[in-house]
Design a protein around this nucleic acid. Structure first.
Lengths: 245, 245
DNA sequence: GTCACCAGCTTGTCCAAACAAGTCTCGCCT
DNA sequence: AGGCGAGACTTGTTTGGACAAGCTGGTGAC
């Protein structure tokens, strides 16, 4: 929180949360805010742009900015790491490795991990839970250059992301998520303790380093009712895309 | 496409698409791009910020920008309107109203539509399809001030969004989406022609005007395998949030 | 009363400059 | 060969100014 525009954004978030700028009302003008915080208008614009992209305020040329809601979005750290997310929510994350083995890369692995055809990947199957109750089946594939570090991890490792950073300095910097629904297979049903064919929320995710090099891809299946995902969008910005199939 | 920074963003998108800046490679520096397009560095920064928020390129202080992929995100118009989305994909959207009636607002309606307790809402149940095949069950609730215009629509109206704009000038400006998975109920199963209890992808959405006034909220249930949703995120920006329950 | 229009306000766009902060490469030293 | 550091390079932050574009409310004509 060094940058002034981030400080201002955080102050505005708090002001919205405590009702100083009520939902449905308007924010002060950029000039007002600039004077109040003793910064230039450009810095204020950076701050309000952050709130806009979070969906907290609306923005339209010529009109005062409107407060849309006081939803608080998650940090990237909380989204990519199940353990960190659970901790932020005050829950206890559990988890254990069910299977872990190397196998030849499939066509999907080659495409998602940008690895040469014929190379191996490390396949890991984990079950994760909240407060002891199983919530999520996670199937990860790691390219060979990561595999060794993953294999060194204990079976009940809480935060894989944190461990890989501490061990070999890998930073999970970018993620792409595809969300759909699937029926529980035999293995899913068994591990989550539900009926076969029941609804699961599936997130397929590819994570890359700062340089865009894929670190892992994953197929996460959440038990019905356990979690939901939220996205805000507007005419100006739309992070969400809908695809056929 | 009036603003110069938008033009530059679009040119960069096209350059990435045609492989001029390959995935995994780097973009020219801001100064280079500023010189090439004969604009200031600030304008270039606006352009690359757009690509960054789309997840196409990565950005890190001190290092050159990295090309992450050539995914193309959807416009807001395509996301909020099923008909417009289908058209953009070259598919034919079908749809019909199954039920439509006014009813007293529930607690959920009051909270989501910011209406006074005790007022009425218009409930509409639609089935929508792609190329004749049913794909989606849509349950909408509209506040009273919108209800009259909705009731004037024909039962097979293609684009409700477009019709409401033409009729009473309502603009769907902001949306908030919550995504999870549910089991198909009896009615869902019947309307979509699937087995009861099968997996459905559910999107609950609230849409508001520019002023933040809710226009509708909707519970959309997509048949398994028919559509998926995609989101890109990074350490710098994370539009996606995960919630319990 | 109603409508059109205008003036003032507010946000959007763009520029030029300077410095801060982080990255990367290359050469030197051990 | 390997590690370390200096310096060049690149992106991030901030300022101040100017004009464009769009909204809003009020005034005046009808």
């Amino acid at each position: 929180m060094a940058a002034r525009h981030e400080e201002i954004a955080e102050e505005l978030r708090r002001a919205i949360d405590r009702g100083e700028y009520p939902v449905g009302g308007t924010l002060p003008t950029e000039s007002d805010l600039a004077a109040r915080y003793e910064v230039s208008r450009g810095t204020v614009r950076q701050a309000v742009a952050a709130l806009t992209s979070e969906g907290r305020i609306g923005s339209r040329q010529g009109a005062r900015r409107v407060v849309l809601g006081n939803r608080r979005s998650q940090s990237f750290a909380e989204l990519r790491s199940f353990a960190q997310w659970a901790r932020a929510m005050g829950r206890t994350a559990t988890g254990r490795v069910i299977e872990q083995y190397r196998r030849p890369a499939t066509a999907e692995d080659v495409e998602r991990l940008l690895i040469p055809p014929g190379s191996d990947v490390l396949q890991v199957l984990r079950v994760r839970g909240l407060d002891g109750e199983p919530v999520l089946v996670e199937r990860n594939a790691y390219p060979i250059w990561v595999a060794e570090a993953v294999e060194r991890l204990p079976a009940d490792c809480e935060s894989v992301v944190q461990a890989l950073y501490d061990d070999i300095g890998i930073i999970f910097a970018y993620g792409e998520h595809t969300i759909d629904a699937v029926a529980a297979g035999t293995q899913d049903a068994e591990l989550l303790g539900i009926r076969r064919g029941g609804p699961l929320l599936r997130i397929r995710r590819t994570t890359t380093t700062h340089a865009g090099r894929p670190i892992e891809w994953s197929d996460d299946r959440y038990r019905q009712g356990s979690v939901s995902f939220a996205v805000a969008n507007s005419i100006g910005s739309n992070p969400l895309a809908r695809h056929v199939g």
